[in-house]
Amino acid sequence: MQIFVKTLTGKTITLEVEPSDTIENVKAKIQDKEGIPPDQQRLIFAGKQLEDGRTLSDYNIQKDSTLHLVLR
Rank of each mutant, 00 (worst) to 15 (best):
V70A: 07
K33V: 11
R72S: 14
L67P: 01
K11T: 10
R42N: 13
A46M: 11
Y59G: 01
H68F: 03
E18I: 12
A46H: 02
I36E: 05
D58P: 01
R42M: 12
L43D: 00
D52A: 02
S57A: 09
Q2P: 13
K27I: 13
M1V: 06
I13N: 07
R54W: 10
T55R: 14
M1S: 10
K63D: 15
E16N: 11
G35D: 04
S57V: 13
Q62G: 13
E51K: 02
G47N: 07
D52H: 09
P37W: 10
K11R: 09
G35L: 06
K27A: 13
T12D: 03
I61D: 00
I61R: 00
K29R: 06
L67G: 01
D64A: 14
T12G: 10
V70E: 15
Q31K: 10
D32A: 04
T55G: 11
V17H: 13
G10N: 05
F4A: 12
D39V: 06
E16G: 09
R42P: 02
Y59P: 00
V17W: 04
E18M: 11
D52L: 03
D58A: 07
T9M: 15
P37A: 13
E18Y: 10
L56I: 04
T7P: 02
K63N: 11
G53I: 04
S57K: 12
V5A: 03
D21Y: 06
Q31E: 03
M1E: 09
I3L: 07
V70T: 12
E51G: 02
R72V: 06
S20Y: 09
D39T: 13
A28H: 05
S20M: 08
S20Q: 04
L8W: 02
P38D: 12
D32Y: 05
A46N: 08
L15M: 06
I44H: 14
L15A: 12
E34L: 06
K29A: 05
G10A: 03
R72W: 12
I23K: 01
I44E: 14
K11N: 14
L67Q: 01
L43F: 10
D58N: 06
I44N: 08
K33S: 14
I36M: 09
I13G: 02
T22P: 04
E34G: 04
R54F: 08
G47D: 13
G10I: 14
I3R: 00
Q2W: 08
M1Q: 08
K6Q: 13
N60T: 13
F4E: 12
Y59D: 02
G10T: 08
T14K: 06
L50Y: 01
R42V: 12
D21N: 07
N60F: 02
N25R: 15
Q62M: 11
V70L: 09
Q62D: 04
E18K: 10
S65Q: 05
K48V: 15
I23M: 12
M1A: 02
I44V: 13
Q40L: 15
K48P: 02
L8P: 10
D32M: 15
E34W: 06
I13K: 01
T22V: 09
N60H: 05
Q41F: 10
L43Q: 00
I44A: 15
L56H: 00
K11M: 08
Q41R: 08
R42K: 04
G53T: 10
L43N: 00
K6A: 12
R54Y: 11
I23H: 02
T14A: 04
K33D: 07
L50V: 05
Q2G: 10
T14P: 08
D52Y: 04
D32N: 03
Q31D: 09
S65V: 14
T9Q: 04
K29G: 11
Q62Y: 07
I23G: 04
Y59N: 13
Y59R: 01
E24G: 07
V5H: 00
T12R: 03
T7S: 11
P38T: 10
D21K: 02
S65G: 11
G47E: 15
E18N: 14
N25Y: 03
L71E: 08
V26Q: 00
N25S: 15
K33G: 11
D32F: 15
L71R: 08
V70G: 04
A46L: 11
T55Q: 09
I30G: 01
K11A: 13
I61P: 01
T66L: 11
K29W: 03
E24K: 06
P38I: 13
N25I: 06
D39Y: 05
V17P: 02
A28T: 11
P38W: 14
I44Y: 06
G35H: 10
T22I: 06
V17E: 01
Q40H: 12
L8A: 15
G10L: 11
T12I: 09
D32Q: 09
D58M: 06
L69T: 04
E18A: 15
D39P: 10
I23R: 01
I61F: 04
K6R: 08
D21W: 02
Q31T: 05
Q41M: 12
N25D: 02
E24P: 03
